[in-house]
Amino acid sequence: MLEEVLLAGFGGQGILSTGMLLAYAALAEGLHVAWIPSYGPEMRGGTANCGVTVSDAPISSPLVVEPTTLIAMNGPSLDRFEPAVKPGGLIIYNASLINRRPVRADVRALAVRANEIAEGIGNVQVAANVMLGAFLELTRVASLGKAGEALAKVLPPRRHHLIPANLRALEEGARIAREAGTKERMKAMNKVWGQNSEFRIQKPE
């Protein structure tokens, strides 16, 4: 198993922390992990991205050049990284800020209105973890439980009061992915399987 995840968005959207959360959750599952930030002279509002490699074998190259999954938090990120996604890979995109669908027909895609969901939870800062919840539900790289436990490691103590909101974000993301899977199965039953790449989501194991 080798998952090479690229998380991308604006600085301040929690991209790096969410990547770290994925790394900690996968580590708790006993997997090999590597986390690499883009570390340009960037600040809030600038671009931010990080690569997380998760594998059941030691990781040779930790650079995420051809991601198996792209988690795109904003339009520029989808524009920039969509062409790089591995054929057969997965794109989870933030439909709150991205008003187009991925054009690639050879990847699976899931739209998540992460900002609205996060605002519904009461904190737009947890939007990236909504995306992570969807990712974990679809790939089962790590359990939601392990991700939830890892929150205490990623968030500094002064932010621990935000753990419940982040837990809800993970759960909401997972729920959306599950429901998309259900829709997809219904579509398959309607014999449109493969024709609409937008919802080619397989039922999680």
């Binding site: 770290m20 790394a23 580590l27 090999h32 992990v33 590597a34 986390w35 690499i36 930030p37 570390y39 990781i59 930790p62 650079l63």
Partner: peptide
Amino acid sequence: DGILGQMMEA
């Protein structure tokens, strides 16, 4: 190099 400095591993 910058990657080794910036990356996180177990």
